[in-house]
Design a protein around this nucleic acid. Structure first.
Lengths: 340, 340
DNA sequence: CTGTTAGCGCCTTCAA
DNA sequence: TTGAAGGCGCTAACAG
């Protein structure tokens, strides 16, 4: 295989030194116009493209970030990924996609791999509550930002929605529709997100003086099939909730699926409210009521702030205040919730 | 910032040469056990992780692939991405996610960027019919595989479903349900996929001696809003089709949305059949009838074959036969199609 | 304004 | 079984 042409080849062809080629490539100001043109011409003729790997090695920056998500097929994550990749492209960053399937071990593996790959920074969407590895990252001042997660750490960077308030809003919405027997598809407690939603949920129950039937609560994994099976079983019970607060739209889809398969009409026989406001929720064929996260804004804030952090680091600036942003949630009432 | 520790530091600590460290890292066979252990211990103590960037530069391989998709929020793509990232992780490859938003210019930009990044290979999902840049890639024997696309090129690698046959199956399904006035949400003709579906569709119409009302055909972009608007308008017309073949499930969701907003009942007033069989289609709350692609199988085949191609290249093996796989489609009849 | 030179951290012959 | 030395292609002082 013929070896690829490099900056030396260009230099030779243009009759200059290799460093001049490098200067042209980097838009260095003080270059004679003619020299620059010669180089540019040589580059064109040789179809030269600079080796970003070598550049990274010399530069100590890769212009690559890692994006770790729990499940890319969850629309909340894929919609976020879309925003993030777009902004990344605008800023000349590459995005390495890491899908953990909500598996902690995989998360850790990915973090190590990304560090070996010398990525400039990492966005972690779907961190568990107390991940040692992630704390380490913050301890080491590695540029990381949590997306839709929070970790108690004085140097932690995060952008998240107010999950606590969001959960309260959900209960409020259901309560005002006359519901008193509320079921809760919570998902696993180990995530920060779900944890906070749990606390918010409980506090709202207390507020309204409602009591929770423990049989009405799902705290297992996010898996579609499991949620589906649980809901199906729940709905067959003689005593069942009149409504369900579901901690993610993705799971809410499984709930609707289960209800539909049991011929339970929504919302007359069962109200369902989700969380996230994935774009499908707004589809009027589905019309999922939900607690909305300002997803686009969050995604933008996450990456833009990460970029600031990364650049600060590459300029060897002293670390400044951590980025800790919490945005408000908002209820969208659609077709799947109705008066009791 | 203190510089990161490298193999020399490890070597010094272990009292060996750097090349020995390198050998340990690469599982070179002929190393004395004790030496190896010394090195391993030093690595551990220093928390050394090798710099994959430097390794890539020396090695001329990055163990990174590019995954170019039209729209990651389309479940067909995100579900494919999930499979691909998993298999990539199993094989120690990183995946750079490139979301083109179905924009050709963006596609070209991404290809250039990935080549500069020296990725070992590229998977392109959603290629347009006659993209020069992609042809170039094949001309240059760059490891690329098209996913769910086909290009007429003797060296082209691709894994795709039989779109032609799939479209025929859709028409057959509708025909057998008694439908004669078929509408077609085709999407833009410029993609290979859609192009072949178009041909298949037309051939089926001919076969059944059906004629197509040109007003019943949508050939604009994949954008949700546009499909929604078109469908809404179409359904308000006094003369409208009794059923719709929609060239992707993603668009079918927009169609259902529009129908629902017009209070048109599905399937009694309008049958809808999609294409892809995204997992949501199987959700019984939605129950979208569709032409299924064997997505998981396709994704696996695409990456596994790409890996073979990449390894072949790094071993400087002569190029062999191109990978050209076409799988069968299959109709899944669910809730959105019914007898006329 | 431009060339020279020394790295960046690793891999890989070649000798020993 | 190990060490020495020369790349991989680029950047970044430092001279001139």
């Amino acid at each position: 295989m013929k070896k690829s042409i490099n900056a030396y080849d260009v230099a030779k062809k243009a009759g200059v030194s290799q460093s001049t080629v490098s200067r042209v490539l980097n838009d260095y100001q003080f270059i004679k116009k003619e020299t620059k043109e010669k180089v540019l011409k040589a580059i064109e003729e040789l179809e030269f493209t600079r080796d970003e790997i070598a550049r990274s090695l010399a530069n100590r920056e890769t212009r690559t970030i890692g994006l770790i998500v729990g499940d890319i097929t969850n629309a909340f994550f894929s919609e976020s990924a879309k925003v993030i990749t777009r902004i990344a492209q605008e800023n000349d960053y590459n995005v390495i996609l890491c899908n953990t399937n909500h598996d902690e071990e995989s998360l850790v593996q990915y973090i190590d791999s990304l560090k070996g790959q010398r990525v400039d920074g990492i966005i972690i969407a779907g961190a568990d509550k107390d991940n040692k590895k992630i704390r380490e990252l913050f301890d080491q001042h590695f540029p990381v930002i949590l997306y839709n997660s929070i970790i108690e750490h004085d140097k932690a960077n995060y952008v998240a929605v107010n999950n606590y308030q969001g959960a309260r809003l959900a209960v409020e919405h259901l309560y005002e529709l006359g519901h008193r027997d509320i079921g809760y598809i919570a998902g696993p407690e180990k995530y920060v997100t779900t944890h906070l939603r749990n606390i918010g949920f409980e506090s709202a129950l207390t507020h309204y003086n409602l009591k929770l039937n423990p049989n009405f609560v799902y705290t297992d994994e996010f898996l579609y099939e499991k949620v589906y099976a649980f809901t199906k079983k729940l709905l067959r019970q003689p005593e069942r909730p009149s409504c369900l607060f579901v901690a993610s739209d993705q799971m809410a889809l499984a709930v609707l699926d289960a209800a539909s398969s049991e011929n339970i009409e929504i919302p007359s026989q069962l109200s369902v409210i989700g969380f996230d406001n994935i774009s499908l929720a707004g589809n009027s064929y589905i019309g999922l009521s939900t607690v909305a996260q300002p997803m686009k804004k969050m995604a933008r804030l996450a990456l833009e702030n990460l970029i600031v952090i990364m650049e600060r680091k590459s300029n060897k600036e002293v670390s400044t205040l951590p980025v800790q942003i919490v945005l408000d949630a908002e209820v969208f009432s659609r077709k799947t919730t109705g008066v009791r």
